[in-house]
Write a protein that binds this DNA or RNA. Structure first.
Lengths: 204, 204
DNA sequence: GTCTATATTAAGATAGAC
DNA sequence: GTCTATCTTAATATAGAC
């Protein structure tokens, strides 16, 4: 047998570690998380965990890098040739869907930015900022053509990030305020946000 | 001299500790913060800090309790007898002003909720939820009278919390994306949010 | 009221047997 | 590849001198 880059068991364990680390880091932040918790969650011993990743920091950076592409994908897909209002509403829907399907990634990112983004500032000032510049230019052109209301495009994006990620990052507060047990609040959140943004964006 | 409840020096040191703790907890979360950091920031020795507060947890809970009243004040002041749109826009302005003047409190709260709100869930399910129920009933009555657009009142509040607190909690990302050095982005944030909510809330 | 010194626990990481 | 045992450092907290 030729040597493989990773055996099946290594693939499985690496994945289990990253999944466990996402669970722990997303709730407790970097410094609030321990290798013991991660190893426990992954069903591995602490030294075995260190066999796969050389340090706590490497696990954290791996998670952040892995998620970045996924995180930016919805904004990438904003189509300059599409219908302006529907494009933006589609972006809102996709971002909310990310909060629904990947709440841990959202909280991981929120924790990192709250703490001053020490491990991800480079990407924020690079990739993210470039993409925002590109897409806000598109939104500005829609405004100039009178196709959507004249609202500052960058602050419009901030509002979309804030309102959609809120349902992942502040989930315990949302559930506590809405009551009604373990209900899924995303359908009514989507109905609200789509209606809300359509009203705000439709030109007078 | 009669004994005082607290000498002047005790008042000063207690305050210095709480201020330092707010600085540290708001950036690193509960478990990510250390008494060393707090003592250092307060200009006191670690044992001296423990002389004033019996434990790390007590300091944290004190901060959370102290801020809660301040935090809910803007929503308390929403006046059922006022002009509906102006009342809600006033609430948006007050919440944004809180993000500007008290970003550390905002981040402290965000950290706590992100981590599942272990130390504040009681207040969220009690005081906060009761107040939200009271004020969303007011907003619903405005909707029923056709004075504002028919948008789910609770999700409307979530959106206001999310968009205004975003400028405190994600400040490093906002600054990185907007660029332009150490500029104060709050004036343009206020202009955006007021315009945005006025459009969304004005009945068709 | 404040300090130095230290007890105690837990965290990140390593050594070496199997 | 995985484990037990352990090293090292740092964290919360306490004891006791001043």
């Amino acid at each position: 047998m030729k040597p493989q880059r990773k055996t099946r068991i290594q693939q499985k364990n690496s994945q289990a570690i990253l999944d466990a680390a996402l669970e722990v880091f997303s709730r407790h932040g970097y410094r609030g998380s321990t290798l013991d918790q991660i190893a426990n969650e992954a069903g591995l011993s602490k030294p075995n965990l260190i066999y796969y990743f050389p340090s706590k920091e490497v696990i954290h950076v791996t998670l952040l890098s892995d998620m970045l592409e996924t995180w930016l994908a919805p904004l990438h897909s904003l189509d300059p040739a599409g219908d302006p209002i529907e494009e933006i509403l589609g972006y809102v829907r996709q971002k909310l869907e990310m909060s629904r399907s990947r709440p841990r990634e959202s909280r991981l990112f929120a924790n990192e930015v709250l703490q001053g983004a020490p491990r991800i500032m480079e990407a924020i000032k690079g990739e993210l900022r470039d993409l925002v510049d590109e897409k806000t230019a598109v939104i500005q052109s829609w405004i100039d053509e009178g196709k959507i209301a004249p609202l500052d495009p960058k602050h419009l994006l901030f509002s979309i990030w804030a309102t959609t990620q809120h349902y992942a990052d502040f989930d315990v507060q949302v559930s506590a305020v809405l009551g009604s047990g373990g209900n899924d609040h995303f359908p009514e959140a989507e109905a609200f946000l789509v209606d809300f943004y359509r009203r705000a964006l439709t030109p007078a």
